[in-house]
């Protein structure tokens, strides 16, 4: 039995990546949004490098949060519209595992690219090199949590007409711990302190989200379809 679960997991993951590849023009949008938000800040707070440097971790991480939120809707939206979500819910396999496959596909497409672009933006804001390494690490650990927790919110609001606003309201309070530990880790790294505490907290949040988030997301999907 479980080998077909394994097969279902991988074929769903591959299928989602294939679909995103087929219309990869849209997949760039969260990335452009991320860059745009970060670029806006110097115009807002002025080009003073010292100020930008101190604010850089917070700016980049808040922009990552907003970019993640923007891209969350695509996890279930198209499947909800064309009826595939019903087939997903009606499969004998554990729905939470299938939801996990979809969330990982979403992260690979929208969360992971942020990690690649962040160093460039860090340079824009004048961050030192070793802090950039920690920034990339926090993004690697943090963005999957954004996708996992976001999946619960999106599963709850997929059936609603204008679910986007409510999605932000549901999901942002739950993003705060990740934001606190991640941006603080980078600030401490810039100041030259050890950041192992913050990084281990982020890793703990990631494991917790990986273990727990798919369950309410699956329950919310069943609810949204009924």
């Amino acid at each position: 039995m479980n080998d077909s679960l394994y097969l279902a997991f991988w074929s769903l993951l591959r299928r989602d990546l294939l679909i995103t590849y087929r219309n990869r023009a849209q997949a760039i949008n969260p990335l452009l949004f991320f860059v745009l938000v970060v670029i806006l800040f110097p115009f807002g707070v002025g080009p003073d490098v010292v100020l930008l440097k101190t604010m850089a971790p917070g700016i980049i991480w808040v922009a990552a949060l907003l970019a993640a939120l923007l891209s969350l809707d695509s996890i279930f939206r198209s499947d909800f519209d064309d009826g595939f979500l019903e087939q997903l819910v009606l499969s004998p396999h554990a729905l939470s595992v299938l939801v996990l496959a979809k969330v990982i596909a979403h992260w690979l497409v929208s969360g992971f690219p942020l990690v690649l672009v962040a160093p460039l933006l860090a340079v824009f804001l004048g961050m030192p090199a070793d802090a950039i390494a920690v920034l990339v690490l926090t993004l690697l650990l943090g963005t999957p949590v954004l996708s996992l927790i976001g999946a619960i919110g999106v599963a709850l609001t997929v059936g609603l007409r204008q679910g986007g606003i409510i999605l932000a309201l549901l999901v942002f309070p739950l993003y705060i711990p990740v934001l606190i530990f991640a941006s603080n880790a980078v600030q401490m790294a810039m100041a030259g302190f050890a950041v192992s505490a913050q990084l281990s907290m982020l890793a703990a949040l990631l494991l917790l989200a990986l273990a727990l988030a798919p369950l309410p997301a699956a329950a919310a999907l069943r609810m949204s379809l009924s």
Binding site: S4, L7, A8, S11, L12, R15, L18, I19, R22, N23, S78, D79, D82, G83, F84, E86, Q87, L88, S91, H93, L98
Partner: peptide, 18 residues
Amino acid sequence: GVKGDLSVAENLRMCTAL
């Protein structure tokens, strides 16, 4: 439940995998 971006075979392969 048929996805427009996928070919017919890909759609069917996904349905059976579930």
